[in-house]
Write a protein that binds this DNA or RNA. Structure first.
Length: 898
RNA sequence: GGGCGAAUAGCUCAGUUGGUUAGAGCACCUCGCUUACACCGAGGGGGUCAGGGGUUCGAGUCCCUUUUCGCCCACCA
């Protein structure tokens, strides 16, 4: 094994090996006897990345969390399936390809529909390949044989089935309503795809001329919409305007006659208290228009130029028209003024163009009926959202849900399976010939049919993902075995877009929840807290990170950087630290393996072929350190398991880090050297077993977090796992429940002494290499200390030969004292000791001690505490006082002596 | 206008049924190339846990409130 862990060498090779052995497939698990017959399968549907481009760190986070969960559950012996796939991402992908065409001086319209779609498929192939390669570099253990794409045949079949069922059930309908229109995309978009940003705009105030003379002052933020006005509205109780209700106003520049109406929607306090009503271009006005049966005038073309309804302004872009109309109104003496006005303006999520509300015929999904069971599922706990607070957000959205505009005027996506007859009659069908059959039945003869040119919102197909990927609508074995899935893991930013829709559609089509848990992670941000984005140039590329630090380091960083549902910041420094951690594990393993080489370790494995974990043989001569690390391993593995089961994945990782680095490496390995090099052969052999055992278990515990380095080490372990046993399919350590509090207590005492001596040595500038004699008054611990003298001597660099340990002994002259409860360690540092300074040092310690003592005594003197605190807390406080008192006396005596 | 989150060491963050003297990484200071590791080891400095109030024997943790920052939802022209 080389001195430093080289992730380049290990990672790609291991991944290929895992995959070639079929370890990512539940069938392999079953064939190898790795699953319990009665175990519930553990299933995750991977959120399919968009085929728009390369993966970013957000995907790396998703992958890290899901792979962690998958590997953990695989190690628990559950049949484990992770279904990968990609999303065609309708509007987003169409846009990137259109941008590319634009750079090449052409356009989708020049190509035509068929050629354009074929170009997008080429793009898809290229990026799909790239994405899969990236995912493999991250080490994700998903079942590639089950990989799906939202536009592949099976999923398209699912989309047809879903659409037709909903259509036949009356849950999909067509209608001419106000939609969010993106003039650049040339398509309607759903409410969710509109992003509102505060814009520094203007509030324009002008005079609305009345037919009988005079005028009403009205304000607007979008003067061009004046051309589409159908009324002027005032509040029915507004005394300023009651006389005008029922009069006729004239649309500026057009002189079209419109009524002055009364509607309670108008806020008399805002602006002039009179409102221009444009039902064709504003959602509120649309409602008013419906109430008053006003004409719905559409003044805009699909590209946001004005149409013939706009009179002389036809042909102008909406913003040009705004300027021009306003200037003309100014000339006509209609302008009162304009002032700065910040307001929310909707922008297209995909291209950031200002969205225009306008009337267009679209397909809609009736959602209220679908939402009810989806709300119920979370309410009853059939689905649990983690963290819980997002359930509130979910309920709020679901309870106020509005119908979903599902048609898009795009070419890339699932074409709407509707064919129209010559009279416009619609037939929902799986194919043109099916439609024709229906047409013949309807018309009594074969007719010319036109398929609806639009495609479905991309979220329609991903909304079916958990079961469409398992074969639905066919009753496949996969569907039977692996549905409902277990966990849906994704970022909280797509709770509505995706999660909510999956629940609604899943319950509708399968009658079951699509997943039992929803685990939401936060968004990855850059160190300064800004969003990571390509355009800002601050995005970290996962492949760069993997190249520089290794996939393990990146994954561990992502997993331990934050907490569920909260955004996390990622810095290269942190990843570097975790690269170092991988190296630390590697070197700890190197030490263990080096020391096992010549030893004939008789390793026994569990009798159950299902669990081939290392069975520690009965060991006669376990050292104190051996017992301590075994107790700590036990405690940490129980705690890590508990944390993971409570979704505290990051905390579990951090605890394992601390254990491996601070306890196993910094203390145990150092202690083991004493046993290995100076102990009896039996003790040395015991220590070898313990080293191997703790290493092996640490690798198991860390594997879901750092799969590569742990497997790389595992494959280097001599005589440990049998050659065909990979760590990836080994068992998660089962807590033994065995504690050894005596060992923990005794070893902690040793640590305290070592720490104290090292501190004094550093403070007094004792040469690091110099071995110094000490005198120890060890009270009732003398026997233990005597037994552990070689350990103490090694860790604190004591001169064991010249060290004396007695129950009680007088401090040598000119010595420095290290105290721990009951034990005084005297370091006769002749020539270095300044007694005055030593007295001051000890006095400081004593003062500190007295503070703590006062606090503890205060607690125990408090009746409330003694009566109400739990027994173990009181007991702990009592024990602490005992120790403090002992230490306090030792210190006081010593100070007096000096 | 509602809702949510964050505020803890110079920086980035942990600290989940309230209970030892509040932790880690990075940065900083002092030592040290001791046969696993300088991608390292040993020692050290650094925090009135945003402010105020409350509940409690006990609050970083629970409640109220204020301030600052961020996010989500919402039809005010």
């Amino acid at each position: 094994m080389p001195k430093a862990y080289d992730h380049h060498e290990a990672e790609e090779q291991l991944y290929e090996w895992w995959e070639s052995r079929g370890y990512f497939k539940p069938e392999t698990q079953a064939r190898l006897g790795q699953t319990r017959a009665d175990a519930e399968p553990f299933v995750i549907s991977m959120p399919p990345p968009n085929v728009t481009g390369a993966l970013h760190v957000g995907h790396a986070l998703t992958n890290s969390v899901e792979d962690m969960l998958i590997r953990y559950n695989r190690m628990l012996g559950k049949p484990t399936l992770w279904v990968p796939g990609t999303d065609h991402a309708g509007i987003a992908t169409q846009n990137v390809v259109e941008r590319k065409l634009d750079e090449q001086g052409t356009s989708r319209h020049a190509l035509g529909r068929a050629a354009f779609v074929s170009t997008v498929w080429d793009w898809k192939d290229e990026y799909h390949t790239r994405i899969s390669a990236q995912q493999k570099r991250m080490g994700i253990s998903c079942d590639w044989s089950r990989e799906r794409f939202t536009l592949d045949d099976g999923l398209s079949e699912a989309v047809l089935e879903a659409f037709i069922r909903l259509y036949n059930d009356g849950l999909i309908y067509r209608g001419n309503y106000l939609v969010n229109w993106c003039p650049r995309c040339g398509s309607a978009i759903s409410d969710l795809e509109v992003e509102y940003e505060e814009v520094e705009g203007k509030l324009y105030t002008f005079r609305y001329p009345l037919a009988e003379g005079g005028y009403i002052e009205v304000s607007t933020t979008r003067p061009e919409t004046i051309l589409g006005d159908s009324a002027v509205a005032v509040h029915p109780d507004d005394p300023r305007y009651t006389a005008l209700i029922g009069k006729t106003a004239l649309v500026p520049m057009l002189n079209r006659e419109i009524p002055v109406i009364a509607d309670p929607y108008v806020d008399p306090e805002f602006g002039t208290g009179a409102l221009k009503v444009t039902p064709g271009h504003d959602p509120n006005d649309y409602e008013i228009g419906k109430r008053h049966h006003l004409p719905m005038i559409n003044i805009m073309n699909n590209d946001a130029t004005l149409n013939e309804e706009a009179g002389d302004y036809a042909g102008f872009d909406r913003f040009e028209a705004r300027r021009k109309l306003w200037a003309d109104m100014q000339d006509a003496g209609l302008v009162v003024g304009e002032k700065a006005h910040a307001h929310q303006v909707g922008h297209c999520q995909r291209c950031n163009t200002v969205v225009e509300p306008l009337l267009r015929e679209q397909w809609w999904m009736r959602t209220k009926e679908l939402a009810a069971p989806a709300i119920e599922a979370v309410r009853t706990g059939a689905i649990e959202i983690i963290p819980k607070r997002f359930e509130r957000t979910y309920f709020h959205w679901m309870e106020n849900i509005r119908d979903w505009c599902i048609s898009r005027q795009l070419w890339w996506g699932h074409r709407i399976p509707i064919w129209y007859g010559p009279d416009g009659h619609a037939f929902a069908a799986r194919s043109e010939s099916d439609a024709q059959e229906q047409a013949i039945a309807h018309y009594g003869e074969s007719v010319h049919l036109e398929q609806d040119p639009d495609v479905l919102d991309t979220w329609f197909s991903s909304g079916l993902w958990p079961y469409s990927t398992l074969g639905w609508p066919e009753a496949t074995e996969d569907l039977e075995t692996f549905y409902p899935t277990t966990v849906l893991e994704t970022g909280y930013d797509i709770l509505f877009f995706w999660v909510a829709r999956m629940v609604m559609l899943g319950m509708r089509f399968t009658g079951e929840v699509p997943f039992r848990k929803v685990y939401l992670h936060g968004l990855v941000r850059v160190e300064d807290g800004r969003k990571m984005s390509k355009s800002l140039g601050n995005a970290l590329d996962p492949l760069d990170l993997i190249r520089d630090y290794g996939a393990d380091a990146m994954r561990f960083s992502l997993l331990t950087a934050g907490t569920p549902g909260n955004d996390l910041k990622l810095s290269p420094a942190r990843i570097e630290a975790n690269r170092n951690f991988a190296n630390k594990i590697w070197n700890a393993a190197r030490f263990v393996i080096l020391n096992l080489e010549d030893a004939d370790l008789d390793v026994t494995r569990g009798p159950d072929p299902f669990d081939d974990s290392y069975q520690l043989p009965p060991l006669a001569e376990l050292t104190l350190a051996d017992r301590w690390i075994l107790a700590r391993l036990q405690a940490v593995s129980a705690e890590a398991t508990r944390l993971i089961d409570n979704w505290q994945i990051g905390e579990a990782g951090r605890q394992l880090y601390e254990f491996v680095w601070n306890e196993f490496c910094d203390w145990y390995i150092e202690a083991a050297k004493v046993s290995l090099y100076e102990g009896t052969p039996a003790a040395a052999q015991s220590t070898r077993h313990v080293l191997a055992y703790v290493l092996e278990n640490s690798l198991r515990l860390l594997h879901p977090f750092m799969p590569f380095v742990t497997e790389a080490i595992w494959q280097n372990l001599p005589q440990l796992p049998s050659a065909d046993r990979a760590l990836i399919i080994s068992r998660w350590p089962q807590p033994t429940g065995q504690e050894d509090s005596q060992a923990v207590e005794d070893f902690t005492r040793i640590q305290e002494i070592v720490h104290g001596v090292r501190n004094v040595r550093a403070e007094y500038g004792v040469e690091p290499a110099k071995r110094i004699p000490v005198a120890i008054a060890g009270a009732e611990f003398s026997a233990t200390l005597t037994a552990q003298l070689p350990l103490l001597a090694s860790l604190a660099r004591l001169d064991a030969q010249s060290t004396t340990i007695e129950t009680d002994l007088a401090a040598p002259e000119k010595s420095v004292t290290v105290t721990t409860a009951g034990i005084s360690v005297y370091l006769p540092l002749a020539g270095l000791v300044d007694l005055a300074a030593e007295r001051a040092r000890l006095q400081k310690e004593l003062d500190n001690l007295n503070n703590m003592l006062a606090r503890s005594r205060g607690l125990l003197d408090n009746e409330g505490f003694v009566n109400k605190a739990p027994a173990n807390v009181i007991e702990r406080e009592r024990a602490k006082i005992e120790e403090l008192v002992e230490k306090e006396q030792q210190l006081r005596v010593r100070i007096q002596e000096i």
